[in-house]
Design a protein around this nucleic acid. Structure first.
Ligand SMILES: [Mn+2]
Ligand SMILES: [Mn+2]
Ligand SMILES: [Zn+2]
Ligand SMILES: [Zn+2]
Lengths: 146, 146
DNA sequence: CAGTAACTGAAAACCATTTTCATTTATATT
DNA sequence: AATATAAATGAAAATGGTTTTCAGTTACTG
């Protein structure tokens, strides 16, 4: 389940943000892509709908969408350029292929018992977590062993 | 349990790397700090032992230490400037206070059943994971509610 | 229709990290 | 100890993603 473009627009406006053609273009790109996209990639695609859009504006749109909880970031372990991405509407995590970059979303993380233990031991009030798995997809495993 | 400076030196040399005073300085900083340090912070401290060291050299030393598995990186969820840090000698994770930045290491993550499930569902061969918790430490909770 | 705050784009600034390259140095070999 | 040499260093410049600045434009309210 994911937010539709319409749903995103209504959330945006409901929160007092203006609906500009630039934001519309960014929204459309995000809503219609099945991949996790970098800001630069979103920029490239948005330009097809709206050639005069600036990269700055894409960054600003992503910032707003982030605040609204409509996108989230992906953290690769490596050199960690934080990748912005489209987002299924709920909490989820990633399984990332270190070979080809393929990303699989998954949502069923159960860390609650671990969280409890940590809270007990440290007194921290835990508010969130970041969890990403790295590995090789089927294809890359095949190539590896060839 | 953590590596001693001596242990780190012996690993370094055993792998054919030269032992320079600069690397010695970086190693000493890392081995003697109880905190997670940024490259810049390591640079500042290393200069006290070895005033002529360059920041570039710190980066290069950290790269080598990374290859040798003597340090690892910390990923904050936020704007994700990857922080290099000192490392207890084994696999571990972080519990990070979003208020004051305090970091607590912990090692007992059991994600194997989740990993198995993912492997079965996706065919991925999972090689590693990134797990960080965010929350508020006792102090910051107190300040929050004041 | 205004009136106004929100929004935009170009350019410049930022800033952590990397690259380049000429010089120095740690180490192995005589 | 002197020598040879590949590895390591530091200054400076380059990179590249992201943010800031600022003057002009525009979406919305009334
Ligand atoms: Mn995702
Ligand atoms: Mn740690
Ligand atoms: Zn792959
Ligand atoms: Zn705190």
């Amino acid at each position: 389940m994911r937010f539709t473009e319409q749903k995103m627009i209504s959330i945006l406006r409901h929160r007092g943000y203006r609906l500009t053609p630039q934001r519309r273009a960014v929204l459309r790109v995000i809503a219609s892509s099945h991949d996790h996209l970098t800001p630069a990639a979103i920029y490239e695609r948005a330009r097809q709908k709206y050639p005069d859009i600036g990269l700055v504006t894409v960054y600003r749109a992503l910032e707003v969408l982030g605040k609204l909880g409509l996108i989230c970031e992906m953290h690769t372990g490596g050199d960690c350029r934080s990748y912005l991405m489209r987002r299924p509407s709920g909490h989820h995590h990633h399984l990332i292929c270190s070979g080809c970059g393929e990303v699989i979303d998954f949502a069923d993380c159960d860390l609650s018992s671990l969280e409890q233990r940590l809270t007990q031991k440290t007194g921290f009030k835990i508010e969130g977590h970041l969890l990403e798995f790295f590995g090789r997809c089927r294809n890359c495993q095949r190539v590896d062993s060839a």
